[in-house]
Design a protein around this nucleic acid. Structure first.
Lengths: 213, 213
DNA sequence: TGCATAATTAATAATTCTATTAAACAACGA
DNA sequence: TCGTTGTTTAATAGAATTATTAATTATGCA
């Protein structure tokens, strides 16, 4: 069955190459890179193990084809934040919501990324290097805004680090352990989705209220 | 060098068995179970690979000897929470602080546990089964207290699930990604420790203020 | 001192994993 | 229909991993 990548027309389902990509994505994200074998991927895709190597040569290249792009994009998205205009409250709300959306869009990769970033420091370094000066600038500006706000007595004293940690913790953690708390809270998938819809507002509320003097 | 477990007196440093345990603990927690080989453990401990199996027979038994007990204890600690007496504010504060302490004491295992719990559902189930009725009772009581508090207009409307998620997110996440944010915030180990000392108060403040109507 | 026992290593079996190669198979166009 | 080309598989090489066994080395005690 000759089926070039592009000519995937009408009735014909996903090509074997696509099935391999899909299987690899699921297994890598669910069980981690080392815990996933090309044999397992082949079994899940429904083909011979050699075919995995025929299309992608090595496990590493396969990983990059599957997740490399998404990972790089997600990390870029997560860093670049222009708070825009308005008062501090508005800017902070926008930052929280923007980051929440980025995390949610990549929720299936959250735990994987936490592992990757904590386990190989080089990855983190290259990200910071790639990002350049923009995030540092934005952070500096934000730190200044915060300081002004505190001095004017509009919010309680808090360091930017603590504030950021609060925001990121609230935004990221639930997605990282989603299977756990759906079980613990005994929720269905639809309920969980509904909760994640609501949750953005909840987090904004918690953070903003939590800053009152 | 004959050295039974007990007779580890005075000058003599850690026995080879202890070195293996230490190496295994570090590697399992840092890189995960599958990504750690007994060869690697032996190398780090400074002995032949066969010795690892001589003392512990299998990699799995070694893992259990190293972390099994700690994991089970940590999960028990995390579940059992008697809020004690006092008003709602006091009880909530106590719960937050107690859980924060549990997490901090086990901070080196946090990310590992998140992976284990999300990846094998059976582990979660057995924990819930082991815990019995006590946590469910405590939760029910707490949910009631919360409801009363909301009806009296002392705190804004919020579900117990959301509140718990807020608390656990704030308590757990920073420890899970500690290496990342020490790097991002450019902090030393001492600074990081100091931050974690402060942070308990910060979290209580954020949660309590965040609940105001 | 020598013997019993524990600690340690070298060698290796068995299995699993990644990767390659050659051959079989399917589809399409000339 | 035949040959070309892309797809898929069987077979297998080569490396790493877990685990066992037998031999070697160290140690304490009688």
């Amino acid at each position: 069955m000759i089926r070039k990548k592009e000519e995937n027309t009408q009735e014909s389902g996903p090509s074997m190459e696509e099935k391999i990509l899909a299987a690899a994505e699921r297994l890598f994200l669910e069980n981690g890179y080392e815990a996933t074998s090309t044999t397992q991927i082949a079994r899940e895709a429904g083909c011979n193990q050699a075919l995995v190597h025929y299309y992608f040569r090595t496990k590493e290249k396969l990983f990059d084809a599957v997740l490399g792009g998404r990972i790089r994009q997600a990390l870029r998205d997560f860093m670049i934040t222009d708070a825009g205009d308005g008062n501090f409250r508005q800017k902070l709300t926008r930052v929280i919501e923007f980051h929440y959306d980025v995390v949610r869009k990549n929720s299936d990769m959250v735990l994987f990324l936490m592992n990757s970033l904590t386990r190989n420091p080089s990855m983190l370094e290259s990200i910071i290097a790639d990002a350049g000066e923009k995030p540092r600038q934005a952070l500096k500006k934000f730190r200044n805004d915060l300081q002004v706000e505190i001095e004017m007595g509009r919010i309680r004293p808090i360091s930017l680090n603590e504030l950021m940690l609060n925001v990121v913790s609230l935004n990221v953690f639930p997605f990282a352990v989603r299977p756990v708390f759906t079980k613990v809270f005994d929720m269905g998938d639809d309920e969980t989705e509904a909760m994640f819809d609501e949750r953005k507002k909840e987090i904004v509320k918690t953070i903003l209220q939590g800053l009152r003097p």
